[in-house]
């Protein structure tokens, strides 16, 4: 509030000074105040507690915990005046992805998130948080809508993956994911992605090409589910705990690998035990990153987004002499 008031005052003084009045000193004073205030809000979040002793498989279970806050819980708590939008205008509406406009700290934003159900009925509707192509196309439609008005995009990811079904394949799920990933690189507004629960493979990254990628402490993000990995590489789906450890799919690992930018700490035992705390911490982080990103010129924003992902990957350079 104070922040906005200061900004308003500076703006007013600027308008006044256009009439020949010298207000540069006053403006400078207020700007200094504003900068100080910014520094306060930008103070780094407490580094995640060294709770990394938690086994990776334990974290997988926490990430999938049925009481964990879901996308709609975050939307309700972090934003005001959420207005949900439906349909991809091509085929249908997909309730596994929730999207719309909302106000976040006074700023209109686009929200996109995958949504799981709390009970059997809701899970039928939400398809256990596994979207179809129309879900991703709806998300892209609304993000582009937001782009036309300069609304930043906040995505919340909690999905086992895109739905493995006949209809999804018939409607080109692979193409829909590819298109989202591609278009996200050219969306001329800030994009902040947060992995809040399960970040399941292609279905997750199609919403996670962000200027910042945040991740809750007990969330997971992986190229394949531990069960899938165990079935394919270990030929035994019951070896999922081993696969979970091998895949390095938890937030501390991913931070080290440079795939995510920040870990959002959770209370001991998981986000569901004290949802208020997690929601508050995430809100602070989103606000801080959004503030930084909104200050960047669009060209720089897009270049940095591209460069961020261009750098991802680890390989070995080999000397020319070992080539034949």
């Amino acid at each position: 509030m104070i922040y906005e008031e200061l900004q308003r005052q500076i703006e007013q003084l600027r308008i006044l000074s256009r009439n020949g009045l010298d207000l540069s000193e006053e403006i400078a004073q207020l700007e200094a105040k504003l900068a100080a205030l910014k520094r306060q809000t930008v103070a780094p979040a407490p580094s995640p507690s060294p709770a990394t002793e938690l086994d990776d498989w334990e974290r997988v279970k926490l990430a999938r915990h049925p009481k964990r806050p879901y996308t709609l819980d975050y939307i309700k708590s972090l934003t005001e005046d959420f207005y949900e939008l439906h349909g991809d205008r091509l085929y249908g509406d997909d309730a596994a992805i929730v999207t719309g406009l909302a106000r976040f700290e006074g700023q209109t934003v686009v929200i996109v998130g995958t949504q799981k159900g709390r009970d059997a009925t809701e899970n039928v509707k939400r398809n256990f948080g596994m979207p179809h192509p129309e879900g991703y196309r709806k998300a892209l439609r609304v993000m582009k809508l937001g782009e036309r008005f300069g609304f930043p995009v906040i995505t919340l990811i909690d999905t086992p993956g895109a739905y493995p079904g006949v209809g999804a394949e018939e409607r080109n799920i692979g193409g829909a994911l590819a298109q989202n990933i591609y278009e996200l690189f050219h969306l001329k507004v800030p994009v902040i992605a947060t992995i809040i629960g399960e970040g399941g493979s292609g279905g997750a990254i199609a919403l996670a090409v962000g200027d910042r990628v945040l991740m809750l402490e007990n969330a997971i993000y992986s190229v394949i589910t531990p069960e899938g990995c165990a079935a394919i590489l270990f030929r035994d789906a019951t070896k999922a705990p081993e696969a979970a450890r091998a895949l390095r799919l938890t937030a501390p690992h991913l931070l080290r690998l440079g795939v995510i930018d920040e870990v959002i700490p959770e209370p001991p035992g998981g986000a569901h035990l004290e949802p208020e705390m997690t929601l508050g911490t995430l809100k602070e982080a989103l606000q801080r990153h959004l503030c930084e990103l909104l200050a960047l010129p669009v060209e720089l924003l897009l270049r940095q987004r591209r460069e961020k992902f261009q750098k991802m990957g680890v390989y070995e350079e080999i000397p020319e002499s070992s080539l034949s």
């Binding site: 292609g202 990254i205 992986s222 190229v223 895949l247 390095r248 795939v259 261009q310 991802m312 990957g313």
Partner: peptide, 17 residues
């Protein structure tokens, strides 16, 4: 799969180029 999340990131990397 043996490169885990980094292989997933190649989807974004190639699309960005």
């Amino acid at each position: 799969m043996q490169e885990g999340i980094l292989s997933l990131m190649q989807m974004a990397k190639t699309a960005s180029a």
